[in-house]
Computed example of a mutant assay.
Amino acid sequence: MDDELLRRLRTEIARALLDDADPHYAVMLACDLLVAGVNGDAVVALAAESARKLPAHDAIRRLAAVADELGLPEPDVPTAVALIAADTCERILDRSIPAEVGTHRLYVVGHEGSPLDDLLPAVTALAAHLEDGLGGRADDDLRTRLAALARTILSRLTAGNPA
């Protein structure tokens, strides 16, 4: 399994740990694992699920089975937060998720045990501006401010100093 696929898998396992797994993404990830030659029973079972109909709690359970099957340990909370925050920031910066979604996903920095909890006020301020000031629709200024926050988070995580 290549590093990128392993990173994606670890990130989804982290989302499952924090009860935020995306069933569609989990199923697609399992399909990518199959294509890469990772074909254990748990991977096959997850890939066989309906990406549109799989309930989130079942996605979480199936991701845990994949992790067990592959011998991947469950990440601790600080690691889970870092994985999810980094993935969210990368998606914000490459615009693969809308700013509205990215803003709310960054609330993960405030999770108990987060090494980035000091950034929660910045996330909260952006979310409040998005919801209260912009009626839930991001404008260019919010996108710019969100991208700057995403770069800050990635810089801290890359420097190995998330706290």
Rank of each mutant, 00 (worst) to 15 (best):
L9P: 01
I84F: 01
A127G: 09
A30W: 01
S155P: 02
P121T: 07
D117W: 14
L126K: 03
E4K: 11
V123P: 01
T79D: 15
A48K: 15
T79M: 08
D140I: 13
R95S: 14
C31W: 10
P98F: 13
S155D: 13
R52W: 13
L5W: 01
T158K: 11
A127C: 06
H57V: 11
G37N: 07
D68L: 15
L154G: 07
L46P: 02
A51Q: 14
P73H: 13
S114F: 05
T158G: 15
Y25R: 12
G40V: 11
M1G: 08
R91V: 04
L17K: 12
A82P: 00
D41W: 10
A125Y: 04
R145P: 03
A26T: 06
A122I: 04
D58F: 08
G136H: 05
R137A: 09
H111S: 10
L18I: 12
T11M: 05
V123E: 00
A48S: 15
D68V: 11
A128L: 12
D117Q: 13
A99H: 03
A67E: 05
T88L: 03
G136K: 07
H129R: 14
D68N: 15
A159I: 06
G110A: 06
V81G: 00
A59D: 03
I84Y: 00
G135P: 05
L83G: 00
L29H: 03
G102M: 02
A48D: 15
V108D: 00
D87G: 10
A47T: 06
R10H: 11
L6E: 14
V43C: 10
A159C: 09
D87I: 00
I13V: 15
G110D: 03
A82H: 01
C31G: 14
A64N: 12
K53C: 13
A148H: 10
D19V: 06
I60A: 09
R61Y: 13
A59G: 07
R15Q: 08
E90S: 05
V43S: 04
A65G: 07
T79K: 06
A45Q: 12
R91H: 10
L119F: 14
E49Q: 15
E100L: 05
G40I: 09
A47N: 06
K53T: 15
H24E: 15
G37S: 09
P162K: 02
S50H: 12
P55S: 08
S50R: 12
I84M: 09
L70C: 10
D41C: 09
G71C: 14
T158M: 10
I84W: 00
T124F: 07
G40D: 09
R61I: 07
E90L: 11
T124H: 07
R61E: 15
